[in-house]
Amino acid sequence: MKVLVCVKQTFDTEAKIELKDGKIADAGINLIINPYDEVAVEGGIQLKEKKVVDEVVVLSAGSDKAMDAIRTALAMGADRGILIKQDTGADEYARAIALAAAIKEENPDIILAGHVAADDGSSQVPTRIAEILGLPHINVITNVEIADGKATCTCEADGGTLVAEVALPAVISSQVSWNEPRYPSMKGIMQAKKKPVTTADAVAADNKVKIIEFAMPPAKQAGVKIDDEPDVCAAKLADWMLNTVKIEVK
């Protein structure tokens, strides 16, 4: 069996966001694998370690810089990579089309991805890929068991926990609590340099949404700050909660 993991390169989640010429400024920003995708990479590698799958392929669509994200995944333990060169302005539809085309050629048994990207927060691409490929999908998993051509997944759901089963091949998207991604070892980093990565251009697809503008959120003004004895602080905070916020105490 083969697992293919989709990874997106994103800004470090600690990055400060600024605008330059009406766009999100990317100069000097540390780039990482989207944390939700990193969990999917780890999940794929663990499936190989458990001998559930024989091969872990990592796929990314983006600029040449995304090669770093692929190399990081290879250093963690993935076997080979595919970089689909695509304009970073592609929307969720266009990205899903490009990724699905590459996945179709690979014909994997399991397709993993993070359920959301930490940059655009869209939560669309894995589900769109499944629809394009006509495959079952299951989202926001915190665990998966593979047996008898089926994936049984535990998922974070609205107001509870769900256990659901899909037949393979299937698209499965990960929640960050699934596992703790490993750091690449020095040996892994050295090996990653020799692992094969193929590149191809993205299949052309028109965007279905248009960015009108980027803006910064309204700056929150700092209010009162008191530094006093705990009892005084508590009394003043209680007064503010009751009279300004007008909370109700149960």
């Binding site: 989640t13 966001i17 940059d119 927060g121 503008e213 980027f214």
Partner: peptide, 13 residues
């Protein structure tokens, strides 16, 4: 976007 660090206005076409 970026979990609220920035805002994007998008049109669904």
């Amino acid at each position: 976007i970026y979990a609220g660090k920035a805002i994007a206005k998008v049109e669904v076409t």
